[in-house]
């Protein structure tokens, strides 16, 4: 194989492109700029930590199933861990969102980072909603019957039936978490590529 042929391969081109945009020292940096030493920058990673707990507790719930999480004390505990991880996940995500909104974090070519964050938030809302209707208890029955009219009014009800437990469970444990995790990964990689957005005064050239 000639050098020109190797250069033309998609694996070669992709590797060079990835290495160009995201060298190892950028992917896993040793230090961050001084302005990152603030509590407001903590909530992104708090959201990721909570998401990890959500996924871990969700895997255990998926392995053991509804009868276990409804009837055993350990099942109740893991079920509650799942719920409270979600509460922390959304709490941290909203504070992260407020922080980034007031920093105008889309500055400096970071618009795609902002957009992936917004779409991740929407996917997470959908994941939480399908989780509420997949609890297999009176609460989930109440929520799904309350939600069906609103969902049907949008026209989505023809393919997304909130009264169909099997469908809601599949959306909750397969499709939406997959979307949320893939989007979160892209979001974090974009933060690594573009770096953390500087404060306004730093952007103007003054150091803090």
């Amino acid at each position: 194989m000639t050098t020109a042929e190797i250069e033309r391969q998609w694996t070669t081109r992709l590797r060079k492109r990835v290495a160009g945009h995201l060298p190892p020292e950028k992917l896993l940096p040793d230090t961050q700029p001084a302005y990152v030493s603030s509590w407001i920058y903590v909530f992104g990673v708090t959201t990721i930590a909570a998401l990890s707990m959500v996924i871990l507790s969700g895997i255990i719930l998926a392995i053991r199933g509804p009868q276990w999480w409804h009837s055993s004390s350990i099942g109740h505990f893991i079920n509650s861990t799942h719920l409270w991880s979600v509460e922390i996940f959304f709490f941290a995500m909203i504070v992260h969102l407020w922080g980034k909104f007031f920093m105008a974090a889309w500055r400096g070519g970071r618009s795609l980072t902002w957009v992936t964050g917004v779409v991740t938030f929407l996917a997470s809302v959908g994941t939480a909603f399908t989780g509420y209707v997949s609890q297999t208890n009176f609460d989930s029955q109440w929520i799904s019957t309350q939600a069906k009219d609103g969902i049907n009014a949008t026209g989505v009800g023809s393919i997304f039936n909130v009264l169909n437990l099997g469908q809601m469970l599949m959306w909750h444990i397969v499709l939406l978490p997959l979307a949320a995790v893939i989007l979160t990964t892209i979001h974090v990689l974009l933060v690594r590529v573009k770096g953390v957005v500087p404060p306004f005064e730093d952007e103007k050239g003054t150091t803090k």
């Binding site: 603030s38 509590w39 407001i40 909203i94 504070v95 407020w98 922080g99």
Partner: peptide, 12 residues
């Protein structure tokens, strides 16, 4: 609580 956390994160 979220608003208080946000304010605390800015000033602590």
């Amino acid at each position: 609580l979220m608003i208080l956390t946000f304010i605390a994160a800015l000033f602590l």
